[in-house]
Nucleic acid binder design. Sequence first.
DNA 1: TCTTTTACTTATCATTTGATAAGTAAATCA
DNA 2: TGATTTACTTATCAAATGATAAGTAAAAGA
Lengths: 142, 142
Amino acid sequence: MEKKALFTKLVSFTTSVHRVTQELTQNAKSDSITPVHYNILEYVTVSQPVTPSEISDCQHMSMPNTSRELRKLIEKGLIEKISDTEDRRKQYIRLSDEGEDLMKEAFATIESKFLARIQNASKEDLEEIDRALDILQTKLFF
Amino acid sequence: MEKKALFTKLVSFTTSVHRVTQELTQNAKSDSITPVHYNILEYVTVSQPVTPSEISDCQHMSMPNTSRELRKLIEKGLIEKISDTEDRRKQYIRLSDEGEDLMKEAFATIESKFLARIQNASKEDLEEIDRALDILQTKLFF
DNA sequence: TCTTTTACTTATCATTTGATAAGTAAATCA
DNA sequence: TGATTTACTTATCAAATGATAAGTAAAAGA
């Protein structure tokens, strides 16, 4: 069946994506940052401001553990907590200036590795890649 | 610059891939299997037979830790170790029958979730997805 | 043959992560 | 107003993971 073959292809594809992502983010994650902390920071970076609950949901982490890790990140000066003015139970998390710097550096490292990876791609290749990303983003990884 | 935009697109794409992968493999990872063990088993499944050194390289795990985790998986009866007949320092790891069963079940769970995800896709969509996977696999995630 | 290298193991310790119970304060509901 | 729910915190314990030192046995090299 065709869908079965597609599934097999998907498995090796996601394996490759994970491998390449790991290669790209290797060393980008500044030392003294654990994987969990990096993932939280990455999520906050692209979605800020976010609530602890959202982080908990998205990172599949219990609220107590999320709370603990956020406290550690605050102690490291990488994120800030802001109370909601309307609902005082709610908190918003965003990067501190120091956190912004750290993530900017990380993304710069990742980007330069990415550019090295596609340096031999032609203009047509890049357009194909662009279109392929759009297709998979909308039709498979929504 | 166009490559910059492509990089931004890649970042949100890989984020989506990770999120969806996590959704698909959720619950597929039988309980009593840790993330590290699951990753090792997945790697062994698609690449067996593999040596401990290869697992160590691929999973970015030190040899001592790899050795320990493999011992645990052997104790659980999920993998087997076979000595190389030519080079007696070398070992080969492959799934045991029990391990095969476990991974078959895991992949079946993942596949059914995948099928549910693409159930509304037309034949044309599936062909587009297929082509897009090929393009990205060869031109970006090699 | 002697030295070095390779492949892997054992042991140990610190840190991270996961899980659970219990608690606070604010908002919502009835 | 009193009960319930929501959002989050604190505390604690067990388990998983990471890092390092030291060691074994076989192969390869000089």
